[in-house]
Computed example of a mutant assay.
Amino acid sequence: MKRRFYFLSIFLLLISILRCNNQVNLKTEEKLIIKKLTEQKGQYDAIKEITDKEEIITFFTILKNACWKKVSDKSRYPDFYINDKYAIWITSNKRIRVKIEDISKDTLLPENDSNILYEIITDEKLSEK
């Protein structure tokens, strides 16, 4: 029994050490205004306004739990902007990269979080894109 407890303690310690320490503190907002890149480079049109509390909480929970790093250079315009703060790129491997403009940090979301976030933004599945 002691041995099992010892191994479990070491395992939990390793998980806490390896866990991402680059999380950000974001305030949940009342609504999300989604803007999509148009045919004219650099121009965005508002396509959707989200006021559903569950979707907003899910959006911010995904962002709060992501592992953030200093901004990497982006050579193309974001596919979406949310509340003019969050730049969203859809990568070629069907994942979402998010950049927070205010604090110059970005993250590449895991596949599952990318799918959830894309469905919140567009009401479509990312796999169908």
Rank of each mutant, 00 (worst) to 15 (best):
I34N: 02
S114R: 00
D73C: 13
L117S: 08
T58G: 10
N22P: 07
K36T: 07
F80I: 09
L14R: 01
L8R: 04
I10M: 02
Y44C: 07
E101D: 07
Y77V: 09
Y77N: 14
I116M: 03
I57G: 09
L126N: 08
K94Y: 10
L8C: 05
F60M: 06
P110V: 11
T58F: 01
I57C: 09
K129C: 11
C67N: 04
S16K: 01
Y6A: 09
Y81M: 11
K85R: 13
S114A: 02
S114H: 01
A46S: 15
F7T: 05
Y86A: 12
I88C: 11
S75A: 11
L126V: 13
E54S: 15
S16C: 06
L37F: 03
D113K: 13
A66R: 07
I116L: 05
E30P: 06
T107C: 05
N22E: 09
Q23I: 09
A87T: 08
S92E: 15
L37H: 03
F80D: 10
D79E: 14
K74N: 14
N65H: 10
T91F: 07
L109H: 03
D84V: 12
I10Q: 01
L109W: 00
F11E: 03
I82N: 05
E128K: 10
L109N: 04
Q43M: 12
N112G: 05
Y77R: 03
F80C: 07
T51Q: 12
C67S: 05
Y6T: 11
F60Y: 15
K35G: 05
S104I: 00
D79T: 10
T107W: 00
F11K: 01
K53I: 15
T58R: 14
K70A: 08
I57K: 15
L26E: 00
F59N: 12
I17P: 02
R3P: 01
I15F: 04
A66H: 04
L14M: 03
I47L: 01
F5K: 14
Y81P: 08
S72I: 11
D106G: 03
E128S: 11
I50D: 07
W89A: 14
F59G: 14
T51N: 11
I103Y: 00
T122Q: 00
L37W: 02
